[in-house]
């Protein structure tokens, strides 16, 4: 893992690198994350209502708050392991080797530690809170610096719109949800909402039948029942599919168990083979010196003739 230069958030011009240089380093880090397939998390941290607090309590208080928040961020992160810079009252950071879960845990810690910060401004005690936007890429995903920072910006906007003192993880927009019409103008009017939903249902069903090359039949006002029936059938099909999958999983587990047994048996054979290091090389023939055999035999001629006859008989047998 590369050792990053320490970057302080104390001020735009106080760090070792300028924000542009840090951005370049961030781009290089994103390219490296793509190349070496590790996770990356981008985080954008803003102090809630910072400008209002500055207006109310003065510039010095604003700077004090930023310094304290910087200290909190520094305490909770390993400065050498991340890249960061500050623009105005917003902190931008990129954490290599940090996945969604770790990123969320870090954000939670920052929120908790910041909530303990209290600024005594004479008659008032000011509570500082943060809004955090997180975007991440899992290991193996392509990381684009512009993409991930844009997503972090989008996430912090959502956190701010929720009232702050929270963190948001960027979620890619759902094309289906996005395609739904805006019903905000009819909220509260049940009939209007029902009409809009019925129209939406009709539209979806027409699309469905068209995709099958058929026109939508007339359900005689029983659209709901038809829909319920369709859902029931779909669920039944899903149930059957789940059962089939469960059966396949069981089969695979049985096969796995069999392979495991076979491997155990093979290991046993190999172990037995290894234990027999002393392989019997056999006993060499000692020819004429055993079984009472000797070079000097009686009836040599007779035996020679007999051997010849045995051989001939065997040769004849072989040639048959």
């Amino acid at each position: 893992m590369p050792e990053f230069p320490a970057v302080t958030f104390s001020g735009d011009r106080d760090g070792l690198f300028s924000p542009d240089e840090v951005k370049s380093l961030m781009r290089a880090e994103c390219a490296r994350a793509t190349r070496y397939k590790y996770a990356v998390t981008a985080m954008r941290v803003a102090v809630d209502r910072l400008d209002q607090l500055g207006d109310l309590y003065g510039f010095e208080s604003r700077e004090e708050i930023l310094n304290q928040v910087t200290a909190v961020i520094s305490r909770n992160t390993r400065e050498s392991d991340f890249l960061g810079f500050k623009v105005g009252g917003t902190f931008h950071a990129l954490f290599p080797h940090t996945n969604r879960k770790v990123g969320a845990a870090l954000a939670r810690r920052l929120l908790e530690d910041t909530s303990r910060l209290l600024f005594d401004e004479g008659s008032a005690r000011v509570q500082v809170t943060l809004s955090i936007g997180i975007s991440y890429r899992d290991a193996g995903e392509e990381v684009s610096f512009d993409g991930i920072t844009r997503e972090a910006a989008s996430a912090i906007d959502r956190a701010l719109s929720r009232g702050g003192n929270c963190f948001e993880i960027y979620v890619a927009p759902d094309p289906i949800l996005d395609s739904l019409p805006d019903v905000s103008d009819v909220l509260g009017d049940d009939r209007a909402l029902a009409r809009q939903l019925a129209g939406l249902l009709d539209e979806k069903m027409q699309t469905f039948f068209q995709s099958m090359g058929e026109s939508m039949p007339d359900f005689g006002g029983r659209d709901r029942e038809v829909l319920a029936l369709a859902v029931e059938k779909m669920e039944a099909a899903h149930h059957q599919m789940r059962e089939e999958h469960a059966h396949q999983v069981k089969m695979l587990q049985r096969r796995l168990s069999k392979v495991t047994d076979s491997l155990t048996e093979t290991e046993g054979i190999i172990r037995r083979g290894l234990s027999q290091k002393e392989i019997d090389s056999g006993v060499a023939s000692i020819y004429r010196t055993v079984q009472g055999l000797s070079d000097v035999e009686n009836d040599q001629e007779l035996k020679k003739e007999m051997m010849s006859k045995i051989f001939e008989a065997n040769l004849e047998l072989r040639n048959r």
């Binding site: 079984q291 035996k303 051989f311 065997n314």
Partner: peptide, 16 residues
């Protein structure tokens, strides 16, 4: 049988 095997000339074995 061993004694016969041993007394059998080599060329016979080769032929068989």
């Amino acid at each position: 049988a061993l004694k016969i095997a041993h007394d059998m000339p080599e060329e016979y074995w080769e032929k068989l």
